[in-house]
Computed example of a mutant assay.
Amino acid sequence: MRTLTPAFAANFAALAYETLEKAPLVYTDYYRLLENSFSFELEPIKGVSGSILERVFTHSTNFGCIAKGKKGLFEGDYVLALRGTAKMRDVITDLNCGLSTCSNSQPVHAGFNHTFNSFRKQLEQFFSKKASKKLNIHVVGHSLGGALANLAANWLKNHFGANVKLYTFGAPRVGYHSFAIQTEAATNNHIYRCVHAADPVPLVPVWPFMHTEQEYILNGAATITPKAHSMTDQTPGYLHTASNFKSYAAINKGMEKRIQEEVRLDYDKRLECSRTSRWARKIGAALITYLRDTGKLYAIQNHYTNTLTVYDQIAKALTDSIDLSKNYTSDVKGILGYMLAFCGYPFKAISFTYASIRHILKLMLKNVFSLAGQAIALTK
C-alpha cells in the first residue's frame, strides 16, 4: 500500500469541501489533478453536523467523497475524504468538551463522535460490498474533517480489518492519550498529521486531550493566527504548503508532548511566555506533568461519566495540592503565571482559591478556543 503524496492528500482534503456545492466535482481544479489516478463514487458521504440546531433537527449535509485508485500506484486502494465546517465551531469551542465512547472503546470528543456516527452506516454499506478482499483505505481530512478522519480510521480498522493510512491537515485533538495510542496502532503508525505552527485549531481541545505523537510542520511561523488554518488560501494555506513537498520525508517533523515528559515552569520567568503555539503546548505539558506528579492524571483521564466537568476537575486538582507541598505550590504558581502571561496579563495577582484558579484556567481556555473558533469560521 503506497502513501499518498502531500499534494494528493491535500487535494483530496480540499475536494471534500466541494461536495457541498451543487456543481459536479468534475468542474473543480482538485478533481482534474486527481482524475488520472482515481475514479470517484457518484454518491457523496452524508452526515449530520455537530451544530446544535442541526443535531436537533438531524439536518443532513454532504460531508465528503470516496475515490478508488485506477491502474497504477494506487490501483484498488480507496480514499475517504472528509470535510470540516464552520457550523461545528460551537462544538470545538465548547469549554465543557463532552465525551463519548468511540469504536475502539476510548473516550473521545462527543461532538466529533456524533457526527462520525451519523454517516457510519453509509460507510458500512459501501465497504461491506468491497470487503471480499483486504481493503486498503486512505482517510483524509482538514480541520474538523481531520477529527472525523481519526475516528473513521479507527472504525475501518476495527470493523473491516482494513489497512489504513491517515492524513490530516490542521486537525483538532480528538481524544485522550489512550485514543492517540490506539490510533497509532490501528494505522501501524502510518499517520501524516500536517500542521501550520501558527494554526490554533491543532491546539484544541486542550488538556487532557492529546494528538498522535508525530506531526509534519508545513509552515513554521509560530505566532498564532486564525488565517493559518485555511485549506485553500495562499496565506499560507495547507493546499499551497503541502504541494511544495514531494514526500513527507522532506517536511520538518515535530512531536506532540507525551505525558511522561517533565516540564516545569518558573513563575519568575513568566515574561518569556508569548502567545505562540510553542508556549501553548509547553503550558499544557507543564500541567500534564503536575497532574501526573500529584497522582491526579489517571483519575481525570478515566473519569468521563460526568462529562462536563473535566476542567473543573483540573482546577480542583490544582487547588487541592496547594497545602500539601511547597514544591506543588511553586508548580501551580508557575503554571498559572504562564497562563496569565500567554493571555496578556503577566502582572495580574494570583490567589490560590478554587474560584481564582478556575478563572485563570477558563481565561486560558477561552483565549485559545476563541482563536480556534475564528479559524474555523474562516475554514476553506
Score class of each variant (00 low, 15 high):
residue 70 K to V: 10
residue 62 N to R: 08
residue 59 H to D: 15
residue 88 M to H: 05
residue 97 C to K: 02
residue 71 K to V: 09
residue 74 F to T: 00
residue 97 C to H: 03
residue 91 V to A: 00
residue 69 G to L: 05
residue 91 V to F: 01
residue 69 G to A: 08
residue 92 I to A: 02
residue 93 T to Q: 03
residue 83 R to S: 12
residue 69 G to W: 04
residue 76 G to W: 04
residue 88 M to Q: 08
residue 70 K to I: 12
residue 66 I to Y: 07
residue 96 N to Y: 12
residue 80 L to S: 03
residue 89 R to H: 10
residue 59 H to F: 14
residue 81 A to G: 04
residue 81 A to D: 02
residue 79 V to P: 01
residue 65 C to R: 01
residue 74 F to Y: 15
residue 74 F to H: 09
residue 90 D to W: 02
residue 66 I to C: 04
residue 97 C to M: 15
residue 73 L to V: 11
residue 60 S to A: 11
residue 86 A to F: 06
residue 62 N to A: 11
residue 68 K to R: 15
residue 96 N to Q: 15
residue 78 Y to C: 04
residue 59 H to G: 09
residue 81 A to L: 06
residue 75 E to T: 15
residue 78 Y to G: 00
residue 78 Y to K: 05
residue 97 C to P: 01
residue 63 F to D: 02
residue 86 A to P: 09
residue 94 D to L: 03
residue 87 K to C: 03
residue 74 F to V: 02
residue 77 D to N: 13
residue 73 L to P: 15
residue 83 R to A: 09
residue 96 N to W: 08
residue 84 G to A: 09
residue 88 M to F: 09
residue 61 T to H: 14
residue 94 D to K: 00
residue 65 C to A: 08
residue 65 C to Q: 10
residue 69 G to Y: 05
residue 62 N to I: 02
residue 62 N to D: 11
residue 87 K to F: 08
residue 92 I to L: 11
residue 86 A to E: 10
residue 77 D to I: 02
residue 77 D to K: 04
residue 75 E to P: 14
residue 60 S to E: 14
residue 88 M to P: 00
residue 63 F to W: 12
residue 92 I to R: 02
residue 68 K to T: 12
residue 62 N to W: 03
residue 93 T to F: 00
residue 65 C to D: 05
residue 82 L to Y: 04
residue 75 E to Q: 15
residue 75 E to L: 13
residue 98 G to C: 09
residue 83 R to L: 12
residue 72 G to L: 13
residue 79 V to W: 06
residue 96 N to G: 12
residue 66 I to H: 06
residue 85 T to A: 10
residue 73 L to G: 12
residue 68 K to W: 07
residue 69 G to F: 04
residue 72 G to M: 13
residue 82 L to D: 01
residue 86 A to I: 06
residue 76 G to S: 11
residue 68 K to D: 01
residue 66 I to R: 06
residue 77 D to L: 03
residue 85 T to K: 05
residue 96 N to R: 13
residue 92 I to C: 02
residue 64 G to R: 01
residue 91 V to T: 04
residue 63 F to G: 00
residue 94 D to W: 00
residue 81 A to C: 08
residue 71 K to M: 06
residue 86 A to D: 08
residue 85 T to D: 13
residue 82 L to M: 14
residue 64 G to V: 00
residue 98 G to T: 08
residue 93 T to P: 02
residue 86 A to V: 07
residue 83 R to Y: 14
